[in-house]
């Protein structure tokens, strides 16, 4: 998915870079609202988490494996603005340190994998939550659908960029079919992991799932009532 140099021509790469800069600018302002002065350490550790989670390969089909992209997952867990920042920083570091994804294609990569993924994934997630009953199952279902759609959405965004500035003479129809087809498959893996991860975090620290804030009651400490006089009842557990 990381686009290398030379795949998209120079003018469109620069235009995508401008879109990425604008998107990150908005995300910076929003992230300060989400996390105030905790932004740097928390977004940094979440970026490290996304980076590590991308190393986790899961089997897709017939011996091939895919890895998590993590845009929707990060957005649901820490909020859309912080999510965009985390994924963008991961992409920036991958391009600078690991030569994964070209430097001139950084704008394209951030636009498709950070901006479009989070926008499509998180937008759909909130929309679904508004319509579904407020239970843990519907949070899991909403994150499943959101992650499932977000990956082909990124592929579709790439196809649009390719149509504007692709350097190879492959028809748009073929690129769209191949890209979106493959990414629907990847999206299924992404969706399964995202939904299961969100619900496992929701079970332990519901307060940490940004996307489900206000939906879940905070966990409360329950203390067994003592009788007014006499020793405490022996526990039956």
């Amino acid at each position: 998915m990381h686009v290398p140099d030379g795949f998209i021509d120079a003018p469109v790469s620069i235009a995508a870079g401008a879109v990425a800069v604008a998107g990150i600018g908005i995300a910076l302002r929003g992230a300060r609202r989400e996390l105030d002065d905790r932004t740097a350490p928390l977004a940094g550790l979440t970026a490290a988490f996304v980076f590590a989670a991308q190393m986790l390969n899961f089997p897709v089909a017939a011996g091939t494996s895919g890895h998590l992209l993590g845009g929707t997952l990060a957005a649901i867990l820490v909020g859309p603005y912080t999510g965009v920042l985390c994924v963008s920083v991961v992409l920036l570091m991958q391009a600078l340190l690991f030569a994964d994804g070209g430097l001139t294609a950084l704008g394209v990569n951030i636009t498709t994998m950070a901006l479009v993924t989070v926008l499509a994934g998180y937008g759909l997630f909130r929309l679904l939550l508004r319509m579904l009953p407020k239970t843990r199952a519907s949070v899991a279902a909403a994150s499943f659908v959101a992650a499932l759609v977000s990956v082909p959405a990124a592929a579709a965004a790439f196809t649009v960029i390719y149509a504007a500035g692709g350097t190879a003479d492959v028809s748009i129809g073929k690129v769209a079919t191949a890209m979106i087809g493959v990414h629907v498959l990847i999206g299924i893996g992404e969706a399964l992991i995202t939904a299961a991860t969100v619900s496992s975090v929701l079970a332990v620290r519901p307060d940490l799932v940004y996307g489900a804030r206000g939906l879940m009651k905070p966990l409360e400490l329950r203390v067994a009532a003592r009788k007014a006089d006499g020793p405490a009842e022996p526990s039956r557990a």
Binding site: R38, F49, L56, V78, A196, V204, R205
Partner: peptide, 17 residues
């Protein structure tokens, strides 16, 4: 795998805190 990812997120986030 997802439980591992969930636990990893919690450990990372709490480390961040």
């Amino acid at each position: 795998l997802a439980k591992s990812v969930g636990a990893l997120f919690l450990r990372s986030y709490e480390r961040g805190e």
